[in-house]
Design a protein around this nucleic acid. Structure first.
Lengths: 154, 154
DNA sequence: CTAAAGCTTAGAGTTCGCTTTAAGGCAAGC
DNA sequence: GCTTGCCTTAAAGCGAACTCTAAGCTTTAG
């Protein structure tokens, strides 16, 4: 019954230190301890860790996560705040995904360029190739960001 | 002529302080200065800043970006390293996008759950609803991560 | 029975990426 | 001429999220 801190560390990839740190910061207020003072993590505690990871990945700071947990403990009077938080996080993550797709376009172009450059032994020669210029235009034709107003950096 | 540090700051959203800091860290080794010692940024410098932003967004640390710039300055003898770097970054960003899609699923579920909870005035009542349980199953039927092995945290 | 592994606490230290401070030079507008 | 604002440098400070240290207790394997 219950997982030791070491087991939870192994399962989550966090260290035991980090788990205690989270607890200190108010992120895991439900963890119980046995008679000799050792932590015993329940399945619910693991679920909370999973939620913490989700909120962290969505860009929330630990103290904001602690606040969410505070709301949860307050009960149904804080439902609106929690709804707003999830709406906001979803919007933020959707933005981030869009940003990463642009980053991916740029990296794809660079990868193709350098693959050609390695083949030719020369970056300049690769940049001269019409295929490369065509690829660049295909990926960056929408001039919606500052990046495209300037030349290649290399 | 070229851009002053203030103009570049306004354009990029970075502060003048940050631009000088980047230079100190070896990220902008091409910026020239006028007779009175002030920085004059060229179009190429702006392009480098755009590349720096891209690599930063791909998860690279500043000192790793500085190393990439070092490779660029060394010339065609470092083409392979640079190609490998872009391949690696693309893989990392693709992973990150996949991770964020999972995060998005979870946030979508939570948002729907809390929307219902706000309507009903009770989280427990919302969790009881068959629609919510159906949505949860729809989003999380693939048991490929630890998250799904445990119950809801709330 | 003893040693090693793993747990406890409080608190100091580390890394990253800025961010601010201190002390001062130059250039344009009133 | 003087103030305002932007520029220069070197260096100290900061917030986030760990990460490690110290000192000591408990449990388990040999």
């Amino acid at each position: 019954m219950g997982y030791s801190i070491g087991e939870v560390a192994a399962r989550t990839g966090l260290t035991a230190h980090t788990l205690r740190y989270y607890e200190k910061e108010g992120l895991l207020p439900f963890v119980s301890k046995n008679r000799s003072g050792m932590r015993e993590y329940s399945r619910q505690d693991l679920a909370w860790l999973s939620m913490i990871e989700c909120l962290k990945a969505s860009g929330l700071q630990l103290k904001e996560i602690a606040q969410y947990i505070g709301w949860f403990k307050e009960g149904d009077s804080t439902l609106k705040q929690r709804l707003q938080l999830f709406q906001k996080r979803r919007a933020v993550v959707e933005q981030e995904v869009m940003k990463l797709h642009k980053i991916l376009d740029k990296l794809t172009y660079k990868e193709a360029l350098y693959r050609e450059a390695v083949a030719l032994g020369s970056l300049d020669a690769a940049m001269q190739k019409p295929e490369m210029q065509a690829l660049k235009e295909m990926l960056f034709q929408k001039p919606d960001d500052f990046d495209q107003l300037v030349e290649d950096e290399d």
